[in-house]
């Protein structure tokens, strides 16, 4: 049996090892699918919903996250159709108004084409991508932090709020946190948040280059897998 599967992403034929996700396949070919909670070394949970794509099957298309979608033979994926771009923009807008005080989130908003925010800003400090929790439990096996609470009250915390002995203070959680990169102009004060949009100038017309990876500087901001390579 073949070790590879061939699928179509945005009209181009992509060959990828069996068992890899659609997101991995796309990124390897330089097709940009913005992503946030995905990390190459850990399992995907599909919580940020930024990497959504359209999966066309039997004439019907279904929106799903590409990180959790296993690449299969002769799959047809639209990663940057009008519909996907609009929804991705809406989600990025939700994220950036929730936690504007991060260059990573601001970058993603720009990349997804957010030009105005229609909701009042909230000065959130965590967008619950779960990168920290997964690196702690999966990569280091420490299980020192986890999610506590539900819905609006959900947060990352130590067990019972106390730092346990088995937390080795490796700070991997902090390293991977998208909130650790502050906006270029420094931290925003509560009540004075704004949509930064500075990186737009460093990227040639993002609205026309949605599909292809342009190796943007923003990679550093949101730890793009391609940038990490």
């Amino acid at each position: 049996m073949s070790q590879y599967v061939t699928l179509t992403i945005d009209g181009s034929t992509v060959r990828t090892p069996k068992g890899s996700s659609v997101l991995d396949a796309a990124l390897a070919y330089g097709i940009c699918i913005p992503h946030l909670c995905h990390m190459p070394t850990n399992t995907d949970v599909g919580s940020c919903r930024i990497c959504i794509v359209e999966h066309v099957l039997n004439g019907r298309s279904k929106i799903t996250t590409s990180c959790s979608l296993l690449a299969k033979e002769s799959m047809v994926i639209n990663a940057n159709s009008e519909r996907v771009l609009k929804m991705r923009r809406n989600i990025a807008e939700l994220l950036v108004t929730q936690a504007p005080n991060s260059r990573a989130i601001q970058d993603i908003a720009v990349r997804c084409g957010v030009t105005e925010t229609r909701y009042p800003f909230r000065s959130g400090t965590c967008i619950q991508c779960g990168r920290c929790v997964r690196v702690c439990s999966e990569t280091y096996g420490a299980h020192a932090i986890g999610f506590v609470g539900r819905g609006r009250d959900r947060r990352v915390d130590f067990p019972f709020g106390v730092r346990p002995d088995y937390c080795k203070k490796c700070w991997a959680c902090v390293d991977l946190c998208p909130m650790k990169v502050t906006p270029c102009d420094g931290p925003m004060k509560p009540g004075e948040e704004y949509l930064c949009g500075k990186c737009e100038s460093t990227m040639n017309q993002p609205q026309f280059t949605v599909g292809s990876c342009i190796k943007c500087d923003m990679g550093e901001g949101f730890d793009c897998v391609r940038h990490a390579r």
Binding site: V45, G46, S47, C48, R49, I50, N90, I91, L94, L95, Q98, I127, Q128, F147, G149, R150, G151, R152, D153, R154
Partner: peptide
């Protein structure tokens, strides 16, 4: 809402 995904929690 469990709060896991952005559209449900924030949206």
């Amino acid at each position: 809402s469990c709060g896991k995904c952005v559209p449900c929690r924030v949206g």
